[in-house]
Amino acid sequence: MLKIGVLALQGAVREHIRSVEASGEEGIAVKKVSQLKELDGLIIPGGESTTMRRLIDKYEFMAPLKEFAQDGRPIFGTCAGLIILAKSIVGQSEAHLGVMDITVERNSFGRQRESFEAELNITGAAEDFVGVFIRAPHIVEAGENVEVLCKHNGRIVAARQGNFLGCSFHPELTDDHRMTGLFLEMVKEAKEKSAV
């Protein structure tokens, strides 16, 4: 069974764990740096990216998260998690983890009251996935090694680069676990590679 951590500093932690468990794997709420060692993959949930960054710094997660990424263990960022993964953020001089070659724009679909749902066609995961967008960012630019998995109204809302997966929406707020399933496949592949 895969051990999938959900960074439990802020955001929809319980919902991600439920989705991982519904997909037949073990979900762990990660509150301490020491827990990262035992994980096969990590989900950085939605929430508020500035608050999340403050907590990442406060609990000294930044260097261990970068190490986790360099080890080739997969990371899935949703909404604020996508912003945490991005190499650059519109209107902000400094990135957070900066592991994905993408530029993101925060709140690009409007504020909280402009939240909406849209049917999405996600390459490799689902052709009829209902994406829940809440103060969602979007990917303005993707580097040449980034595979664009989904666009909504011409804006990139899901992408993959190597062991990193990111999306603008909240897959954990639905009962459709195919996006989580796509990430779990990535984790399985990475685990098989590292075992060789």
Rank of each mutant, 00 (worst) to 15 (best):
residue 58 K to L: 12
residue 119 E to G: 00
residue 55 L to Q: 04
residue 28 I to S: 00
residue 49 S to N: 06
residue 80 A to R: 02
residue 39 L to G: 11
residue 79 C to N: 10
residue 136 A to S: 14
residue 100 M to A: 13
residue 33 V to T: 14
residue 33 V to D: 07
residue 116 F to C: 01
residue 25 E to G: 00
residue 88 S to R: 15
residue 33 V to F: 05
residue 106 R to G: 01
residue 23 S to W: 06
residue 27 G to E: 08
residue 136 A to K: 08
residue 118 A to N: 11
residue 65 L to F: 03
residue 89 I to D: 08
residue 61 F to A: 03
residue 130 V to Q: 08
residue 107 N to H: 12
residue 123 T to N: 06
residue 112 Q to H: 14
residue 39 L to F: 14
residue 79 C to R: 08
residue 123 T to W: 03
residue 64 P to Q: 12
residue 113 R to L: 15
residue 93 S to D: 15
residue 43 I to Y: 08
residue 98 G to E: 09
residue 106 R to M: 03
residue 105 E to T: 10
residue 59 Y to A: 04
residue 83 I to P: 10
residue 126 A to Q: 10
residue 119 E to D: 14
residue 88 S to I: 00
residue 97 L to T: 10
residue 42 L to H: 06
residue 93 S to N: 14
residue 136 A to R: 08
residue 43 I to H: 08
residue 88 S to T: 14
residue 22 A to W: 02
residue 51 T to I: 13
residue 30 V to D: 02
residue 134 I to E: 03
residue 27 G to H: 06
residue 42 L to R: 08
residue 30 V to H: 04
residue 86 A to S: 15
residue 48 E to R: 13
residue 140 V to G: 03
residue 100 M to I: 14
residue 49 S to Y: 07
residue 80 A to K: 03
residue 88 S to P: 00
residue 140 V to D: 07
residue 111 R to N: 12
residue 84 I to F: 05
residue 123 T to H: 09
residue 14 R to L: 09
residue 42 L to Q: 08
residue 137 P to V: 00
residue 75 I to R: 02
residue 25 E to P: 00
residue 67 E to S: 15
residue 96 H to E: 10
residue 140 V to I: 15
residue 102 I to Y: 04
residue 123 T to V: 15
residue 48 E to L: 11
residue 46 G to N: 02
residue 41 G to H: 10
residue 38 E to Y: 09
residue 17 I to A: 06
residue 44 I to E: 06
residue 32 K to F: 10
residue 21 E to G: 13
residue 77 G to D: 13
residue 44 I to F: 07
residue 70 Q to S: 15
residue 89 I to G: 13
residue 54 R to G: 15
residue 20 V to N: 06
residue 39 L to N: 11
residue 74 P to K: 10
residue 68 F to Y: 15
residue 45 P to A: 07
residue 35 Q to R: 03
residue 79 C to Y: 07
